[in-house]
Write a protein that binds this DNA or RNA. Sequence first.
DNA 1: GAGACTTTCTCCACTGGGAGGACAAAGAGG
DNA 2: CCTCTTTGTCCTCCCAGTGGAGAAAGTCTC
Lengths: 396, 396
Amino acid sequence: MRRMTARPANAHQARLLRLLRDGGPNSRAQLGDQVDLSRSKLAVEVDRLLETGLVVADGLAASRGGRRSHNIRLAPGLRFLGVDIGATSIDVAVTNAELEILGHINQPMDVREGPVAVFEQVLSMAAKLKASGLAEGFDGAGIGVPGPVRFPEGVPVAPPIMPGWDGFPVREALSQELGCPVMVDNDVNLMAMGEQHAGVARSVGDFLCVKIGTGIGCGIVVGGEVYRGTTGSAGDIGHILAVPDGRPCACGNRGCLEAYFSGAALARDATEAAQQGLSAELASRLEAGGGLSAVDVAAAAAAGDATALDLIREGGNRTGQVIAGLVSFFNPGLVVIGGGVTGLGHTLLAAIRTQVYRQSLPLATGNLPIVLCELGPTAGVIGGARLISDHLFSPA
Amino acid sequence: MRRMTARPANAHQARLLRLLRDGGPNSRAQLGDQVDLSRSKLAVEVDRLLETGLVVADGLAASRGGRRSHNIRLAPGLRFLGVDIGATSIDVAVTNAELEILGHINQPMDVREGPVAVFEQVLSMAAKLKASGLAEGFDGAGIGVPGPVRFPEGVPVAPPIMPGWDGFPVREALSQELGCPVMVDNDVNLMAMGEQHAGVARSVGDFLCVKIGTGIGCGIVVGGEVYRGTTGSAGDIGHILAVPDGRPCACGNRGCLEAYFSGAALARDATEAAQQGLSAELASRLEAGGGLSAVDVAAAAAAGDATALDLIREGGNRTGQVIAGLVSFFNPGLVVIGGGVTGLGHTLLAAIRTQVYRQSLPLATGNLPIVLCELGPTAGVIGGARLISDHLFSPA
DNA sequence: GAGACTTTCTCCACTGGGAGGACAAAGAGG
DNA sequence: CCTCTTTGTCCTCCCAGTGGAGAAAGTCTC
């Protein structure tokens, strides 16, 4: 199959493509209800889109009391690739043009092995998805990496946990390999876009999406658009001061949030607690697995282990304190908590909520939902697909 | 003179009006260089603007090597009113359509006396400006109040330091009294707009504007637009936690930034220090004035008083810590420090800079200027004029 | 000071896109 | 089978915008 070559010629076409992406197949008449164009104009634009092959006719719609209308849908052969490179694993998924996941693979991989090794892995995962018959090729790909990105160029800049990636032309390299347009963004921003598209943030204009994984980051959405900051490092809240003169952090400072709570910090604290004999549950898990991770803590907490619960609660308190500050500053309409430690679930959420509701002013918290991420590991890949589709579905 | 009744009929006209506002008188040809319209189209739109009376011909421009062109400028009779209601004083200014200040009055007034008394004062100040011949009437007014505002309606919501103002229809009431369109916003946002229009932030898209006055607030500008948050309380950073389990704050919590540094806190700390005999300088000022304010501290510091300098430094450190967090989160291109305590000047600035540059990550601070406000007390009123002119110079 | 060259401004004919009505097609319902 | 509704197509009219031609008003060189 020929890959997507055409692009919408004007803002109207772009608008229509996005409506079809977000609302699925639609009749001309239904589209007309949403876009405020004259029938003739709409017909012309739809015809042009049909010509380009971006959309196709798709049978007849149900009658609304008169003549049945012909449905229009995005070309069913379009395929987007969503790639979410985490610190310790990689998610790759194929979606159709409506951003529905057709296939999803996850594989462990340490991002510190460097861009070349990681890309090899990503490409082999993409090939696997292709081989399973889900796609004959990709029309675009959206990639998330766990660090700041100079967005227009798609290049990581000074990523603390990704040595060897600084300045690597991710966008260009991957675009070459995959033979399709590629956009690169921070993994947290992708998660935010995913939740915005298909998750809890669907109808919210301004929200924060806090991702607690190996590190801690925060996606910022302003007026429906991801805000990336002047140098692309907006949302990097892991190194906000949580405890004055506190623990040393890998970044060289003391008392950073990440030094107290993150996948890494939690694993370390749990190991320590186990070794000190504070928790039989954790100790047995340490012995069994040879090490502890956030997942073990979550399991121990689920089993009712007091030490694990304390660890989670304390971390949640610190995180909540920082989030409370952000809520005062940013006054979002929603806060989403996600990332690898969502397994910690409601214990964590309760601790965060307590802090935020206690510390921020009533005007900011009065109607502020703080909720867990809805999509889990698929948020990132859906966000990736969304990122590239937003790019492709805009006027050339 | 007839007041401004017409409004730009389309986006092109609005664009032209803003260009004339920001760039002053311009020839048709110069305008043409900036707007990317065909000559004829431009001529048509300009003619229409001339018809409405919003712009007028203004003599001949200098030759650029050929026929001299006729200059166009905004109607010289247009007058905007900028009002900045602070916690303890009111600033009112008239500007022309280019937002140049023609007259500016400041008067002390406690905002807690309530909206009715304050409005009386504002109206009498406006009348005074009119009487001095600077304006025959006002075409629009922009008002800043020291608390959160529901922006679309122009109504203060739950303002902590303005009892009696909650829900008062500021916009409507003032519009009625002045007989012109009115827009209401938070005073900090106005300051940010002022600095953006005529101050240090002229060419920066994303920046923060921290105002340290009686309280502490922060204007947030994203992509050239003020960001107000979901309920209009964005930037309310005075009650961010600065010291865990610290001093009690008026808001009911402990350790808020405002409890440690603001005009009020500074005055209190200075008085305490004077009474404890820590500083002869401050003590003599306390005796002379019957009380101490931030201004006294500034004067004492300027005179080299060690205690005053310490107070400023410590406050700057706390403020800097909070700002450091915001910088990590928001990754602005500029941070402006302003407000009543700017008199504290470079001691304060140095302390803030030290904290931010030390605590935030290099990527965010690498090219981040942290500067003092350039416009001082005029920032607010210019921002007010800018607010209403932005409103009036947009398509109806 | 005359002529050549530039720039600005106005006028005008042409073009192309869009609006909206008329009409045909297709179905629902009685 | 007839009427009413909805959808889709076609066609004409209108108008805004483009861009060229040329006049007006300068500057600059010789």
